[in-house]
Nucleic acid binder design. Structure first.
Lengths: 198, 198
DNA sequence: GAATTATGTTGACGGCAGCAACATCGGATT
DNA sequence: AATCCGATGTTGCTGCCGTCAACATAATTC
């Protein structure tokens, strides 16, 4: 057995991890559309068909990156909310962490939300919903349990929209140059929403 | 002369428009990654190289779709704000129209914000900024001129994030089934932001 | 130590983007 | 009206890609 526990594997070392890393670098370089399995294999120093021993196809590799990303995002969100009691403060902290994550791991983020995966992969979907549920819990404390889902959507929408606009190059570059700058803009935007309403 | 005025053109009729239409349909079918110029040519009933008489390459076709989309979006936004005087009402109306547009023309919207275009195409970029400036004007009336840009970003972020999450299949399907349902959710989300803050 | 399984390689096939050489059509020139 | 010429469309090619099948080799298990 030990099918999946391939720690320090056979020929290469850990080709699966190397391929994931290569793919992320490749996406950062040439964008998602410029990603090719063959180039990943080249970067990892193996032949062009070797990846198929670790991923059923190209989509499977992308799904693995998405899962990794959702896992990192959940962790970042939890860490940001840790120690905060006020629900509104927790939601803001999550939103800021969300944007910071997107700018720090843009390749992962793009793959997570690219809608380019043919089959609605259940694993990636579940990972996304797990990250989302973090929001809904705190939203319930703000908006009441009956409209928690709606409030969760509302508080997901702002950081997600901001992150997408940033990764799409739609924001002034100085706001996306560093994770800190991006987080600062996220805080400002959330502040606007707090102030302009009544 | 009359290089660009190809009204009722030569052999095909209007291959350029037919290709754009075919591409939009193709994206709706198989997603952006599944788009191929050759398949568009097949749909239009021409040979695989004919598209190159109308578009320099695949990216150029996508840019044309993006421009078309930004033009439609601007028009929809202007129409939605028409007759409204209260700036906050104008911003809400724009946001709702934004989401409605995304659900009505998902292929266009995906291409507009796909970040898969290699060169930062200046035409598409200008078209996007024109649509954005519609927001900033009304935002200035809400937040004051000095922070109009920030307020514009804030009011862009919500509909954009919601639209992206919808097109990515991250919202319950009943909210994205029809443009009306999507617009209703957008209105609700904007309402949450009006109520939960202080 | 032998059998088995996991991992990697080579070579092939079909599809796509893009280019070049050729063919044809339609309007403009004379 | 005959001609020319540019705009449009076709055929065929090259190189890259995703994927599969057949083969080779290395690690694990018995």
């Amino acid at each position: 057995m030990a099918r999946k526990a391939k720690r320090k594997a056979y020929h290469h070392g850990d080709l699966r991890a190397a391929l994931l890393e290569a793919a992320v670098a490749e996406i950062a370089d040439k964008g998602l559309h410029g990603l090719s399995l063959r180039e990943c294999a080249r970067r990892a120093g193996v032949s062009h068909a070797a990846p198929y021993r670790h991923f059923a196809d190209k989509d499977a590799l992308l799904v693995a990156i998405a899962e990794e990303g959702f896992s990192m995002l959940s962790q970042a969100g939890r860490a940001a909310m840790e120690g905060l009691d006020d629900p509104r403060a927790r939601l803001d902290a999550y939103g800021i962490a969300y944007v910071r994550f997107a700018v720090t791991y843009p390749s992962h983020f793009r793959v997570m939300f690219t809608s380019e995966l043919d089959d609605p992969d259940p694993l990636a979907r579940a990972a996304g919903e797990r990250a989302f549920s973090l929001l809904v819990d705190s939203a319930a404390a703000v908006a009441g349990p009956e409209s928690a889902e709606l409030a969760g959507v509302a508080f997901w929408t702002v950081p997600h929209g901001l992150a997408m606009l940033m990764l799409d190059g739609r924001m002034p570059p100085e706001h996306t140059a560093t994770p800190e700058a991006a987080a600062a803009l996220a805080a400002q935007v959330l502040g606007v929403w707090r102030e302009t309403s009544r």
